[in-house]
C-alpha cells in the first residue's frame, strides 16, 4: 500500500485547527526520529565493518571486545564529525 495515497484518500477537511497543529507537531517529531534512525543505520554499517573481525560469524552475541568497540566507534565518529564542523567554522570565519 502506498502510504501517501492512503493519506491522500482521507478526508482531512474536517480537522480542526488544533488537530492540524497537533498533526504538524507529530509529523515533525516523527521526522526527527526517522533522521536519528537513519544515522543509527549508517553508524551500525560503518562500525560493524570496523569492529567485527572479517570472516564468518562464530557467535551470535557481541563479545567483550566487540561491544565496547561499537560504542567507542560511535563516540569517535561523532568526535571526528565535530572536528570537521569546527574546522569548517574556522575556515569560514
Amino acid at each position: 500500500m502506498d502510504p501517501s495515497n492512503a493519506i491522500a484518500g482521507m478526508d482531512l477537511s474536517k480537522l480542526s485547527d488544533r488537530d492540524k497543529q497537533e498533526l504538524q507537531q507529530f509529523v515533525m517529531n516523527e521526522s526527527q526520529k526517522a533522521r536519528i534512525q537513519a544515522s543509527v543505520h549508517s553508524l551500525t554499517d560503518t562500525c560493524f565493518r570496523k569492529c567485527i573481525p572479517a570472516g564468518g560469524i562464530k557467535s551470535p552475541k557481541l563479545d567483550k571486545y566487540e561491544e565496547p568497540c561499537m560504542r567507542q566507534c560511535v563516540d569517535r565518529f561523532l568526535d571526528a564529525n565535530f572536528v570537521v564542523l569546527k574546522e569548517l567554522e574556522r575556515m569560514r570565519g
Binding site: 534512525q37 543509527v40 551500525t44 560469524i57 562464530k58 551470535p60 561499537m70 560504542r71 563516540d75
Partner: peptide, 23 residues
C-alpha cells in the same frame, strides 16, 4: 553463520542506537 550474523547485527544496531541517543 547467517543466523548468528543476524543476531549479532541486531545487537550491534541496539548498542549503536543507545550510545548515539545518549551522546
Amino acid at each position: 553463520c547467517f543466523t548468528h550474523c543476524m543476531e549479532k547485527y541486531m545487537s550491534a544496531w541496539n548498542t549503536v542506537s543507545k550510545q548515539y541517543v545518549a551522546r
